[in-house]
Write a protein that binds this DNA or RNA. Structure first.
Length: 690
DNA sequence: GATCCTCGAGTTCT
DNA sequence: CTCGAGGATC
């Protein structure tokens, strides 16, 4: 094929074909997004395609036909709503994704204003909803329209009238006032709506913005009314013919608030670029706890006179900037699916991804949980997948992009033999997890068992991490070298000389490790039981067992009926425990541990849970997020010392949720259930009262 | 038998 | 943090 430079006609034809294909794709995505409320690709991908098409059209202006998606921008027009031409166009803001862009924005503004001094900015969250314009004539709400393409939007007056947040009458002498703002659905209302959709067996909405869009574009205003939409005002359309009642944006917002328009309490005024970045960081930290979704923050030069001096570049104001958070979804390629072996032999498929930047970090791996999950999502090697890193920190493969599947993409099948030791793989009837049957013969399981044994919540051996365990279990560098450790008991026979022989282990570190191992010889019985790694016995059950049996001997001697006496132990757990202690191998390891000097501290009689309920005693707490001055573990210890209980999940029985920074779904759940939410200071107060 | 509440297990990246 | 599943409760 001829190169573009060589043959202009051929180049135009090729560009035309590419543009047509981009348009088809964009139209399909737009339809899925706006009309079906079921986005097929992340926003970032849509933007990328859009930009590609814009690029082509600017290079070959002949291709820029009026029906191109680039000539429309924004919502698909719906024949159901009348068009409204905005008196003052609703423009969009320039976006910034990095600090450098913010610095450049501030610098350009100062240069244009010829000002050395730091600029005062009005700042506010960038709501993730739909922009609307509300027109008031003689103080009466007359017309409400969506943004549409910025020039013309849809008349949704009847639906907007149903919003409690929008005043139908305002106390002003202005004969004409146009208020701009965002219609959105607050998270609580979104959760409630989806619950109702679920209960009725109808499709749930993907996110609050789509729910808001879908709700606002209902033909029946009664449906909109039931959806509990919210509105925040963020500006006034100022034309030359309309004098504004304030000379600063922040004062304008105060004025709107006085007119009973909802204005976010999270807005502020700051000074200079440092102030902007501080605000961005502060809102970012609080993002998860805000009652509504945001996708960044907006900066506006506060002085309206200065705004007018700065003016516009093409179609965006030079006095305002949207500083956006990194996308929480991104597309990438699935390079392969590996299978990992866990402590219990569980085989977990893990997606190996082409590295992709999402939610502020580069993601290369993501769990696929189990075989069924892979089937459900129809994930195949070679697929283009959408990776998400939402409220959760842990990335996941949200879905695949079916239209980008390469021919011959392979389906995943769980191996029939363990990828590590070759033992048979079994998947018990009715269970979701496949397991390696190799037990401790499998080096992966031995490795994980040792890591678990040494972990902080078990024997707490500091410094015994993955790298070291690998070397101790299977000396990779020198296959002939002796395996220093086969069971946890072997750890207690290591000396400084042996450890010092390992890679990256100078004498000092070797000494530290041996000392750490030595220091772990006096665990509580609960920790020791937990460290053994008995199936279905976690931290809590281990503690219950220790409390009930008091000694390791008594626990080991217990038969199933005796075990069933322990609270929260049922037939399955009892069988796991009995089976574990019945195995000669496990008995040998325990004997060896005791012989090596591991001696659980005697269980001290716990102050029998005082029958009386205190403010903390007898109450159930759930911890979430990062507390300002103490770790969650410390908080938990404090609560337990005061006779309270700490649980992992929020339910009706929860008395308090203690929330810190970046609290996630638990906080959300607490709000839904009406559970009291306190912060660290509140917790301290309760503890002081106890 | 159904429902709710917990616990256990597995996981990512800096 | 989320899922699956065990245990308790009605």
């Amino acid at each position: 094929m001829a190169g573009p430079a060589a043959d202009p006609a051929a180049a135009l034809a090729a560009a035309g074909a590419a543009a047509a294909s981009l348009r088809r794709e964009l139209e399909r995505h737009a339809h899925a997004y706006y009309v079906l409320d079921a986005p097929t690709v992340p926003d970032a991908e849509y933007d990328r395609l859009f930009a590609a098409l814009q690029g082509l059209e600017s290079e070959f202006p002949a291709l820029a036909t009026p029906d191109s998606p680039t000539q429309r921008v924004g919502a698909a027009p719906s024949s159901a709503f009348a068009g409204v031409t905005h008196r003052v166009p609703m423009l969009s803001l320039n976006n910034a994704f990095s600090e450098e862009e913010v610095v450049a924005f501030d610098r350009r503004a100062r240069e244009a204003l010829g000002s050395e001094a730091a600029i005062a900015y009005a700042v506010e969250p960038k709501f993730d909803g739909l922009a609307v314009s509300l027109t008031y004539v003689d103080g009466r709400f007359e017309t409400g329209a969506t943004r549409g393409d910025g020039e013309t939007g849809e008349d949704v007056t009847a639906n907007l009238r149903t919003l409690q947040a929008i005043p139908l009458r305002i106390d002003t002498t202005l004969s004409l006032l146009e208020v701009r703002g965002e219609v959105l659905m607050r998270r609580r209302d979104f959760a409630r709506l989806n619950e109702a959709q679920r209960a009725r067996g109808e499709r749930e909405f993907v996110n609050p913005r789509n729910a808001a869009a879908g709700s606002l574009r209902q033909l029946d205003p009664a449906i909109t009314a039931a959806r509990r939409l919210w509105f925040y005002a963020y500006g006034v359309a100022g034309g030359a013919d309309q004098p504004l009642p304030a000379d600063r944006h922040s004062a304008l917002m105060d004025w709107l608030a006085a007119l009973r328009f909802p204005v976010t309490p999270d807005r502020a005024t700051v000074c200079g670029v440092a102030g902007l970045l501080d605000y961005f960081a502060g809102i970012g930290a609080r993002r998860a706890t805000l009652p509504y979704d945001i996708d960044g923050v907006v900066y506006k030069v506060d002085s309206i006179a200065d705004q007018q001096r700065l003016g516009f570049v093409s179609r965006a104001p030079r006095f305002a900037l949207a500083h956006k958070f990194p996308a929480e979804e991104a597309m990438t390629e699935l390079l392969g699916i590996d299978v990992q072996v866990g402590r219990t032999g569980a085989l977990t498929p893990v997606a190996r991804l082409k590295p992709v930047f999402v939610g502020g970090v580069t993601v290369t791996n993501a769990t696929l949980h189990n075989e069924d999950e892979v089937r459900r999502k129809d994930v195949r090697v070679g697929d283009v997948v959408v990776v998400r890193r939402a409220g959760d920190v842990i990335p996941e493969v949200a879905r695949i992009v079916p239209e980008r599947r390469p021919p011959g993409a392979r389906e995943f099948t769980m191996p029939v033999a363990c990828p590590v030791c070759g033992s048979a793989v079994a998947r018990p009837e009715g269970e979701a997890i496949s397991r390696c049957t190799g037990g401790l013969y499998c080096s992966a399981q031995r490795r994980q068992a040792l890591l678990h044994f040494a972990s902080r919540r078990a024997m707490d051996i500091e410094g015994l991490g993955e790298k070291l365990v690998d070397q101790l279990v299977s000396p990779a560098a020198d296959p002939g070298a002796p395996r220093l450790v086969r069971t946890p008991a072997d750890l207690y026979r290591l000396d400084v000389e042996q450890v010092g022989g390992l890679e990256r282990m100078a004498e000092k570190s070797a000494r530290n490790l041996v000392a750490a191992i030595d220091a772990s010889r006096r665990p509580t019985l609960a920790r020791l039981v937990f460290a053994l790694g008995i199936r279905n016995v976690g931290e809590t059950t281990a503690r219950d067992l220790a409390r009930h049996f008091r000694t390791l001997d008594a626990l080991m001697a217990a038969d199933e009926p005796a075990l069933l006496q322990v609270p929260d132990v049922g037939p399955v757990v009892a069988a796991s425990i009995a089976t574990f202690f019945a195995q000669p191998h496990n008995r040998e390891v325990i004997d060896a541990l005791l012989a090596a000097g591991v001696a659980p501290q005697p269980v001290v009689a716990m102050p029998v849970a005082d029958a009386g309920l205190g403010v903390v005693a007898g109450r159930t707490f759930v911890l979430t997020g990062t507390l300002p001055t103490i770790t969650r573990d410390d908080a938990r210890a404090l609560i337990e010392a005061a006779g309270g209980k700490v649980s992992g999940s929020v339910s009706k029985k929860t008395d308090y949720v203690v929330a810190g920074e970046e609290a996630g779904s638990k906080l959300e759940k607490a709000r839904q259930l009406g559970v009291a939410v306190i912060d660290e200071a509140g917790l301290r107060e309760l503890l002081a009262q106890e």
